[in-house]
Amino acid sequence: MNDQVISAGTGGWLALGLLLLSVLPGAMPQAEAAIQGRLGTDNADCLRCHRMETLGYRDPRTGDLVDLHVDGRQFGHSAHGELQCIDCHEGDFGQYPHPESVLGQQLDCVGCHQELHKADKRAYTFKTIEQEFALSIHAVSDSPKAEGFDCHRCHDPHAFRNSEVGQPIAEIVRAGNQLCLSCHKKIRDPHSTAHLWLPKRDKHWQSVRCLDCHTPLTDPGQPVSHQILAAKDSNFDCVSCHSKEARLLGRLYQYRSETDLAGGGWLSKAVFNEAYVVGMSRSPLLDALGLGVIGLTLLVLIAHGWGRYRAYRRLREDRS
């Protein structure tokens, strides 16, 4: 998310928003229904108000526009799509105006996710994510923009879904980078000097995620770290990806697993294979040897041909 922040602690302003909406001719019947009496607490009841795209307010403290809208369809497809709103937003939200006591909750993603079934058996535990994030530039930066940075800044709980095996790499890259660029807007400025050092900058942006360079290298098979690095600490070493270990294969390209290949048809996946990274096959020694031997052979063949031509000329002269 960018400047639009979804917050659970904005009930008073929500009431004002609804009140304002209620005076709009088109919105009146729905808003009126919403502010009278007790509401239900299933998702349909919540979305009755929160599906309205105009539901929001401007925070007088920060001046930010706080968006209270939830796209029901997007939420249904999100990682949390099967949950009830009140699974996370605990309290008496069935009452409107929502009571002060339930507003301003700080939702604890890690706490909830750690309670999930077999959470501690995951190869990449939420405890690790928490530890990595604590070292992230988003957590340690003094910048006012990073103040209060939490999971929701990147992972919109109403929309976020994990990248999945079988998803096109380009789609994963686009979605991942969109998260970063929604805040880091200056990167997109045509006059920006960021990443100018990077050969084929636009190509890199299309082909790899910001995270692939702006996180520390992880062990093979591990996903990218949540320890987002500052620009100066990020990976400038081309051979981290363009090398014999080709770490991109273990990171971004983990999404191209066997099931992916089987699902998309092996021939199609073989032809439209995206796993080859420039430089993966580069070896200065083999290139020098290969090109050297080919060059020498070419010279020998030219010399041999010249010798044959001279022999032919001699034969012609002898015959004449």
């Binding site: 983990q254 697993s257 066997e258 290949l261 092996w266 996946k269 796993a275």
Partner: peptide, 8 residues
């Protein structure tokens, strides 16, 4: 072509 299926 099937490098993602190769052992590490």
């Amino acid at each position: 072509l099937f490098s993602v299926s190769l052992p590490e």
